[in-house]
Nucleic acid binder design. Structure first.
Lengths: 128, 128, 128, 128
DNA sequence: GTGGTCTAGACCACG
DNA sequence: GTGGTCTAGACCACC
């Protein structure tokens, strides 16, 4: 699988997993009905504890992105009811933009960067 | 001052202060050489522990955004020397965009939202 | 048969079968002496592993709701002898009511909902 | 505090804690803004592991019933946005009622029991 | 002091 | 085989 963790990253390990899976879903690389690798396999691949991965999967489940069939693995859910509050989405955007401005980027540069990132995020999904 | 804290926010208090000051600088509301209110005053205004504010100021100082002029309190630094790593800036952007995609927003909607936020962030700063 | 399973349901598959049969008995749709469909047939109909159905039937048998007549399959038992502990019944009731209260429902609304559900549960059973 | 766990109970320990806190909130015994006992204290009182309680508190937080101020404890949230899906509430009700019917209770007895439980659930809240 | 994260390792439930 | 729960014990972040 295409998940990575970085011990330098400030986010907790389990959150990195959550974000990684979210990114894979957002890009279309993981689609509805597809199975996620097992907790044990991810734990082995990344060299982290079983429980840590289990926590990540549980959070994904709680957010409705995946559902678990107990002895049978974890699969990507159909995404109905994912009505995220507008404000909830805007807060991280605002924060990221603030940092870019502080980094000296002009508005034009920022918009260009946004377009580039969007393209990258979609590209990995392939034949979508 | 125009700083606020929200106990419902998931970020720690000190981080909210840091982000708030960053936003004020990014918008131009706080410019080079301008003084920040004293730790004591902010703590009093917000009803927060002195230590919490001190931690926030220390982090701003560590990031090179402000410096302490002895006897004169904390002032906003010049922007030189703050070369933030490109990757460091891109990570939160990517994360914010991922959430927007998962929230069902199209690329066009996202770019529009980015422009709107940029405008809002600048507006507060006035003549800049 | 009128049993269904839902892979999105949080309950394990075998429990869904158990609950389904219980509901059929409670509504009168299945009465004393009537036969249940064979394990093999249910498994085929629902596209579920044989073992899973067998586990469900075993639990129903352990609870005294059905018994096995050799050569004749599984049949619904008479109700005698199934003295369920009062406390055992009250626990799930209390839990369900707690959730309704937390959901903002008033006592009157709850009682009304209870009556409606009772009616629905009986209706399916016909002449009873 | 008035939380108990029962090793005979089929629910996992952490779920019993969650349900217990929910019941306390539903009854009004725990009101908005009131603090929950610390993870360590509950763990000590009940003789279970720290992590188990932490998992329970995290779930309560995820459901929006409490919010956590990192170094400062856990408090009951104001309850806006607790729009639970009607179906989500009805499922446990239906299941509980089914069991009561199977236990031989008549509809009248059941409604009476419901009223009694509702009264009990509210009574513990006192001056509400 | 508070809660959060992580590890190691055990045992259970499900399919 | 899958995921779920629990324990014991460690270390970190926040206030």
């Amino acid at each position: 699988m295409f998940l990575t963790v970085d011990s330098e990253d400030k986010r907790p390990l389990y959150q990195q997993i959550v974000d990684g899976v979210k990114a894979l879903i957002a890009s279309g690389e993981l689609r509805e009905g597809m199975g996620l690798p097992s907790v044990r396999q991810v734990a082995g691949d990344l060299g982290v504890n079983l429980n840590t991965i289990a926590v990540a999967y549980r959070q994904l489940q709680a957010e409705g992105l995946v559902h678990v069939r107990h002895g049978a693995g974890t699969v990507v859910s159909s995404r109905h009811g994912r009505e995220v509050e507008e404000e909830e989405l805007r807060k991280p955007l605002r924060s990221a933009l603030t940092q870019l401005i502080l980094g000296g980027r002009s508005d034009r540069e920022i918009v260009t960067a946004v377009r580039r990132e969007l393209k990258l995020l979609h590209e990995r999904g392939g034949s979508r």
